[in-house]
């Protein structure tokens, strides 16, 4: 089996050359963009891209690689943003610890929501996650520390590790870039791990995975918690970048947006959610001038995607070029 030594997964022999090239191209594009983008684009905008890209990748771990459609991921993203904002503002935590606190909060919340939701499948699973996320929204509106309708404002960026001033936009940018890349690699590794292999088996044929002796529910729950944690990391980072956490972050429309990003880019692909997030966030930026018509344009894009390329952009490219695991 030495001929497949460079692949983590087993790729059909005739597709190996193309797959290797395809993967290399996408990695170079991604790394090139992440390293160089702030010199061509407004850094805060690129940071927003990266935060949402990480959010979409975390979401994709669940829908694309486990087969679970969560319709409440905003709770983890936005909930963590509030927690991170609070510990930075009220308790004076350093930024890195704030992100960890946000991630941990999302993990615990994910454990609770996941444990309840995985008892059901399909649309019922989605409805339970939505209902629980609405409860989180309610708390975000009512709890004293969240600032209610105004949100949590003026979150200090502070100093990373005590000496890197994050008020400098390039410093802030590269910190966000590192958070994104670490999160992205964590997801990549999870997908290509023994655990990820079982997840894929569950997604492909759940009764069979069960009959082979796998405790399917436990695998789903762990995947759910991992996904929630990384969504929380994305939300916390976003709160530091924009220096505020708002109700929009926990609103159900944000849960919808992340589904959109993942589907546009290609669910179950590795790079798809990144591209999908870039497209949706960029559209929102470019089209701010037309007000609420943005929603119409994004909605139309979504319909077009679902009709024309059901597998998403990266998914369709992979199918046409017979690339695996991109």
């Amino acid at each position: 089996m030495t001929d497949i030594a460079e692949f983590e997964e087993d790729v059909p022999a005739q597709d190996r050359g193309r797959t290797r090239i395809g993967q290399a191209v996408l990695w170079i594009l991604l790394l090139g963009f992440v390293l160089l983008a702030p010199f061509f684009l407004y850094p805060v905008f690129v940071m927003q891209l990266l935060c949402f890209a990480l959010f979409a990748c975390a979401f994709n771990l669940l829908i694309g690689f486990t087969g679970l459609l969560s319709f409440g991921h905003a709770a983890f993203f936005g909930g963590a943003a509030y927690i991170c904002g609070h510990v930075l503002t009220a308790w004076g935590f350093p930024p890195l610890l704030g992100i960890i606190a946000g991630g941990l909060f999302a993990a615990v919340l994910g454990l609770v929501v996941g444990a309840l939701a995985i008892r059901r499948q399909g649309i019922y699973f989605a409805m339970i996650t939505l209902a629980l996320a609405q409860i989180v929204y309610f708390f975000a509106l009512q709890l004293p520390f969240t600032g209610g309708e105004d949100g949590l404002q003026g979150i200090p960026r502070g100093y990373l590790l005590g000496f890197i001033n994050l008020n400098d936009s390039l410093n802030m940018y590269y910190f966000v870039a590192v958070v994104f890349l670490v999160g992205f690699l964590a997801i990549y590794r999870t997908i290509h791990s023994p655990f990820g292999q079982v997840l894929q088996a569950i997604r492909e044929n759940e009764p069979r995975a069960l009959s082979l002796g796998y405790n399917v529910d436990r695998f789903k729950l762990i995947a759910f918690v991992l996904s929630a944690t990384l969504a929380g990391v994305a939300g916390s980072t976003k709160a530091i970048v924009f220096q505020f956490a708002s109700l929009t972050d926990v609103h159900w429309s944000t849960s919808g947006e992340v589904i959109l990003m993942t589907l546009v880019g290609g669910m179950g692909t590795i790079f798809g959610p990144v591209l999908g997030a870039f497209i949706v966030v960029a559209l929102q930026h470019v089209l701010t001038g037309i007000g609420s018509w943005v929603q119409v344009v994004i909605g139309a894009t979504f319909v077009a995607c679902v009709l024309v390329f059901r597998r998403g952009i990266i998914g369709e490219i992979a199918r046409l070029l017979k690339l695996h695991s991109v």
Binding site: E8, E9, D10, V11, P12, R189, T190, H192, S193, P194, F195, G196, Q197, V198, Q200, A201, E204, N205, A209, L212, G213, Y214, R218, F219, I222, L226
Partner: peptide, 27 residues
């Protein structure tokens, strides 16, 4: 369906390795 024949069999075999929850380890 979307795993190769080799991977299909490996899914059954890997249980005995006892690292099925190891999401940090390479495949």
């Amino acid at each position: 369906p979307h795993l190769t024949a080799l991977e299909n069999v490996r899914v059954a075999l890997q249980r005995k390795l006892g690292m099925n929850y190891h999401f940090w380890r390479s495949q």
